[in-house]
Every structure is written in C-alpha cells, then in structure tokens.
C-alpha cells in the first residue's frame, strides 16, 4: 500500500516536470536559428538532399561516432552476459517445412538488396545507415527463423563489424587531412545534386555505419536467442 502511495507521488512529480512542456509550447512559426542555418547552408555546402542525413553524418557526426561506439559496448555486454555455458542447449523437436525454408531463401536476397538500397540512398531519400542496417539484420533473422541456418559465422560477423568501424574512423581522418576537419565529407567531389554518386563521402560513411549497425544488431539477436539444436524429428 505504501509502495503504491510512493509510486503515485513519483508520478505526480514527473507530471509536474512534464507539464511545462505541454503548456509552454513554441508558438512561433519560424525555426530556431541553428535549424534555419542548417537548412540554408547544408544543400550548398554538402550537396545532400536529405538534411537529416547531413546533420547525422556531418554536422553531428561526432555524436554518431559515439553512438555507434555505445551500440558496440551494449552488444559486447549482451554477448558477455549471455555467454553460452553449454548446458542450456536444448533440443528442438520441430523441423521447418520445405516451403518455409525455400520461401525464406527466396526472400533473403531481396531483403538484403532493400537494406543496401536504403543505406546507399541515405543522402537522397528517407533512410540511411541505421535503417538499412536494421533491415539487413532482419533479413538474417528471417533465415534464422525459417530454419535455413542454425548459426552464423562469428568470425565473419566480427570482421565486418570491426573493419567497418575502422574504415569509418579512417574516412573521418581523411576529412581531417584533405578537407576542413574530422568527419568532413568534402574531400571527395560533390558531383551533381541528387545523383547517387554525390555529396562527397556521405554515402561512404553512411554505408559503413549501415554495415556496422547491421552486424552489431545481428550480434544482439544471435546472443539473445535460445541456442537449440535441431533434430530431424518432424512435428
């Protein structure tokens, strides 16, 4: 009873904190100064059509680098906590049907293609490395759920993850050497506005982020799932 009372008090406190947000909303139509600066300058400076991508990859690029590092730390912690001890391996009694397996195998390359499309066009259309990486991870998840594969090659996964992370920092340092600063994508030619090969190194950086995020999320999924050994017993 006293617990519930304390919870209600905490809730009222949180409501008191949130109430000013609801009551004093910005009413002016104009955007804040920083946002209008970005909107004015980003297309000319970087040549990317998607302003959100310009902000994530370039203006706030250091935040994104830190964010990817946090994601890596969380993935490593999940893998450490759920380390396989050997005695939790159960035996699954169901076997996936042929239709499920071939359907999954048929859809898998299309999903991967879609994910690659999303992160390659991150500077032109909505989407980018994070979304594309997640789509790729779900493609591998489909293989796992349909029973086409039982486990992934951890060497390849960690190789993709660490190489793309390394290349991300290398591209950022290239910006430091040949352009204005760390993570500056303008050391590559800007190209025509709105084409695939444009906006300097933004598509390169976002593709590397996509590969890294995809490998990390797949690592989380792989660590979380029940380790089962399939037997040839049909349900």
């Amino acid at each position: 009873m006293i617990k519930r009372f304390l919870a209600i008090i905490a809730l009222l406190g949180a409501a008191a904190v949130l109430l000013p947000f609801v009551l004093n909303l910005p009413t002016e139509e104009a955007l804040p100064e920083l946002a209008s600066k970005y909107i004015e300058n980003a297309p000319g400076e970087l040549g990317a059509a998607n302003l959100v991508t310009s902000i994530i990859v370039t203006y706030r690029g250091l935040d994104t680098l830190g964010e990817v590092a946090v994601l890596f730390a969380a993935t490593a912690a999940v893998g450490l906590l759920l380390k396989r001890t050997g005695n939790e391996v159960g035996v699954s009694h169901w076997k996936s049907s042929e239709i499920l397996k071939s359907g999954g195998g048929f859809l898998f390359p299309l999903i991967i293609l879609y994910g690659v499309y999303i992160f390659l066009h991150g500077h032109l259309t909505p989407g980018g490395g994070f979304q594309g990486g997640v789509v790729i991870a779900t493609g591998f998840l489909l293989l796992l759920l349909s029973g086409s594969v039982d486990s992934f090659n951890h060497t390849v996964m960690s190789l993709v993850e660490s190489l793309s992370g390394f290349a991300y920092v290398a591209v950022a340092l290239a910006g430091l050497i040949w352009a204005a600063g760390f993570l500056d994508p303008r050391f590559l030619p800007q190209g025509d506005f709105g084409r695939l090969f444009s906006a300097g190194a933004i598509p390169v950086i976002y593709s590397l982020i996509g590969l890294k995020v995809g490998a990390e999320l797949l690592g989380i999924l792989d660590a979380m799932r029940c380790k089962v050994r399939r037997e040839g017993v049909t349900a």
Partner: peptide, 8 residues
Amino acid sequence: FVDPIPSA
C-alpha cells in the same frame, strides 16, 4: 521545413 535537428 520541419526542424531537422530533433529528427536526427
């Protein structure tokens, strides 16, 4: 445009 910074 809407503010792109919160989106990012």
